[in-house]
Every structure is written in structure tokens, then in C-alpha cells.
Simulated scan of single mutants.
Amino acid sequence: MTHEEHPFGRDYWEERYAAPGLAWSGDPNPVLVAEVTPLAPGRALDIGSGEGGDALWLAMSGWHVTGVDISTNALDKARARAESVDGPAAARIRWEQHDLTSWSPEPRSFDLVTSQFMHLPESARSVLFRALAAAVAPGGTLLIVGHDVSDADAGEHRAHFRELMFGVDDVLAAIDGAELEVEVAESREREAPAAHDGATPVRDVVVRATRPVRPPAAG
């Protein structure tokens, strides 16, 4: 299944990001900040980078970042915003357009691979998560965050996209066999802005895993 075969295909994202201004806040995702701040900067891959809030934060924190998105409009916005906010950080970001249902990153090539709220149908999602796990270098970290399927009944909008949501076990099953050590695997509650004043509790899947550094075999 390609992006074009479900509601959030390339045309959807190109249209959404074609409008003036930002579609999102421009801030980094809080889970990314919490989980990545303790890590030593290296090479990072930001999957579904959108308007670049996460990629820019990573670059400003010293990472060399590859931001990948299906939408060229999103990438153009992200590039322009990064250059206007922090030129040196922007120079540490490479923006790439890829359809994640047909593209995979180079194996064992990133010190951080982050996927924040990348929602695809199950078959494509599992393939992508396996590819992301494979892209983690020795000593590197995989961080996958998404809307928990247990929240699918928490409103008409979410219920409509139940097939694009997932649970912790879905992520663990997808990355099983990738030789990663799972350090965090939980459904984490947070307060999300509501349609009206106030906030509403929602749950996020948070999975963080690392690839051990294996000592060379004795010769």
C-alpha cells in the first residue's frame, strides 16, 4: 500500500502544507525532548519531519540531522524556517523527500532514529518500523512515538482513523529480531489541547531501544 491509498497520502500533505503559516506549533515534540536530551549528539534521522520542529531542535542541540518527509511543501517550509531561526543549526540539517512506504534508510547509519506520530496502515507501518530499527548504528537509539490505539474511541476523529493507530505491542513485534535492547515500552498519558478551552488526556505509545556496541570477536 502506498501513501496515495489511504487518507493521509502525499496529496493530502502537500495541500495541508501549501497554506501560509505553520500547520503545527513549530515546537519539538515533548517526548523527543525528554528522551533525547540525555543523549550525546551524533547523526539523527527524523522520519516524517513535517515543518521541521523536531529536526531544528535536534540541530540546535548539536545533532547532524536528516529530515525526511513525503511533502515538498513541508520540506520547503522547514528549510526556510530553520534558516531564519538559526543559520548554523540549519546548516546541520539535510532535507530529503521520500515516500516512506517505498524507501528505507541505510542500515546501521544513524545514532538516533526518531519517528514522531508517523501513522500508516499496519502492513506499511510494520515494514517501516523494521527498516527504522535496522538503521540504528551500534550505540544508537530508536525512538518511536505515536497515538495509542487505545484512544481510538476517545472521539469521533480518532475512531475514524483507528486503522492508522497502533499499540506498544505492535511496535515491539515490528522491531523484534532487530537486535535492539528495549529500554522504554509504555503507553504514556499527556494533556493535549482540546477543541475548546482546556485540555484532554490522551495516551501516546513510547518505545525507546538501543543497539548495543558489541566488542570485536577475538581473533
Rank of each mutant, 00 (worst) to 15 (best):
T2P: 10
H3Q: 13
E5F: 06
D11V: 15
A18D: 13
A19R: 15
P20M: 09
A23K: 10
G26Y: 08
G26I: 09
N29L: 13
P30T: 06
V31F: 15
P38F: 08
G48N: 04
G48A: 11
S49Q: 11
G50V: 06
G53F: 03
L56V: 14
W63R: 14
S71T: 06
R81D: 02
G87H: 03
A91T: 04
R92G: 15
Q97N: 05
D99V: 01
D99W: 03
T101I: 02
W103S: 01
W103Q: 05
W103R: 04
P105I: 08
P105D: 05
P107N: 10
F117C: 15
L120N: 13
L132A: 00
L132F: 00
A134Y: 09
A135R: 00
A137K: 06
P138Q: 07
G139Y: 12
G140I: 09
T141I: 10
I144M: 09
H147Q: 12
D148T: 14
D151H: 10
G155H: 15
F161P: 11
M165L: 12
M165K: 06
G167D: 11
V171G: 05
A173S: 13
I175M: 11
E179W: 01
L180Q: 12
E186W: 02
R190Y: 03
A194M: 05
A195F: 15
P201E: 08
V202Y: 10
V205H: 09
P212C: 09
